[in-house]
Nucleic acid binder design. Structure first.
Length: 328
DNA sequence: AAAGGCGTCAACCGCCCTCCA
DNA sequence: GTGGAGGGCGGTTGACGCCTT
């Protein structure tokens, strides 16, 4: 006998999620947190497999997700990490804040693979393609492509950081002869040092923890005017779920203070939770969610917002017991 | 304007791993 | 030690939109 299916598939809905289903799922997770996924569809009133709910949440609805194309820097990180880890997309994703394994996998297959092949690099081995395989001879390769190829091997750094990096790298060279991979962490002197420097610069990288049920990061735009109300925005000027949240009349501070971990106070949590629930009851908001689902034409400015470093994030915590969200 | 090709990506499938009774 | 449940992961599929002819 084969393994039993993860759920009874009879009568279960498949295919694209509707805004209403999204609402139900988010509603449920905001209320109860991420618990047993198998029970989620039943409790949330969804005709979906638990697995489908988990995927929908982790790949699309999670509030800390970045949307839009991978930045050049992220792309280079993916290539670098792929060279070390292979197709371990979740590991790679854990190094890229706000990106999912599915997103990275798709981007790899649709963009990066072609890019590397075009430049004569084998996307599997990350070595120059052998002669029997079609490749562009370097002699005949356009200069700019040769430059691209070189740049792919190096992650761009802020010039201010470059000198710091050089110094740190020298130290690293003395302690580590070569890159090594451990079970859970890529140990690449060059790469990790760059990561350290990025952290110094306020850009969160390195080991990005998988989101815990009680800890969710919210990218944060500059503090919105407190006069903005939930009912005053429309889908026409709102392209992003996260942005929309920030436009609302919440007392959400963007000045996240790590030492302020005491902020998990229930009163604030309840206030914010009520705001969020009110938000989900707002039909415009669901409209925006639908817009988000079909969001495929972000303009440059918005993409910048989406790519904003996590240093600009406020931190949204979900009380693991009450399931209520609170914000620092 | 219509048809076909192509690219993209959300979602599904099935295997694997971990945990726990 | 063993088997089942639940979740994670990587590969694949299919719907949809855009582009070309």
């Amino acid at each position: 006998m084969g393994r039993q299916p993860c759920c009874d598939k009879v009568g279960l809905k498949k295919g694209p999620w509707t805004a209403d289903e999204d609402k139900k799922l988010i509603n449920f997770i905001l209320t109860n947190g991420q618990c047993c996924w198998r029970a989620v569809p039943k409790l949330a009133g969804l005709l979906r497999c638990g697995k489908s709910c988990r995927l929908r949440w982790t790949n699309y609805l999670r509030p800390d997700l970045k949307r839009g194309l991978l930045s050049e820097y992220e792309e280079k990180m993916v290539i670098d990490l792929h060279a070390q880890l292979g197709n371990r997309w979740s590991k790679i994703a854990s190094h890229l804040p706000g990106r999912t394994d599915n997103e990275i996998k798709n981007h790899w297959n649709t963009h990066i693979k072609k890019k590397l092949k075009k430049m004569g690099i084998d996307p599997v081995t990350h070595k120059p393609l052998s002669n029997d395989q079609p490749q562009i001879s370097k002699q005949h390769q356009p200069v700019e492509e040769q430059q691209d190829q070189q740049q792919l091997l190096e992650v761009d750094l802020d010039p201010k950081l470059e000198s710091q990096f050089d110094q740190k790298n020298k130290e690293a060279e003395t302690s580590l002869e070569s890159s090594t991979i451990t079970e859970d962490k890529v140990v690449t002197p060059l790469f990790d040092d760059r990561m350290d420097l990025m952290n110094m610069n306020g850009f969160c990288t390195d080991e990005v923890p998988i989101i815990e049920p009680d800890e969710i990061l919210m990218p944060c735009a500059p503090p919105a005017s407190s006069t903005t109300s939930a009912s005053s925005y429309s889908s026409s000027n709102s392209t992003n779920f996260l942005e929309d949240l920030q436009l609302l009349d919440f007392e959400w501070s963007c000045n996240y203070d790590d030492n302020n971990s005491d902020n998990n106070n229930n009163e604030d949590n309840n206030i914010n939770y009520n705001n969020i629930m009110a938000l989900w009851d707002d039909e415009d908001f669901i409209g925006n969610l639908d817009f988000l689902i079909n969001d495929d034409d972000l303009d440059g400015d918005r993409k910048q917002v989406l790519d904003a470093p996590l240093s600009q994030c406020s931190r949204m915590l979900m009380d693991s017991e009450s399931g209520a969200y609170g914000l620092f």
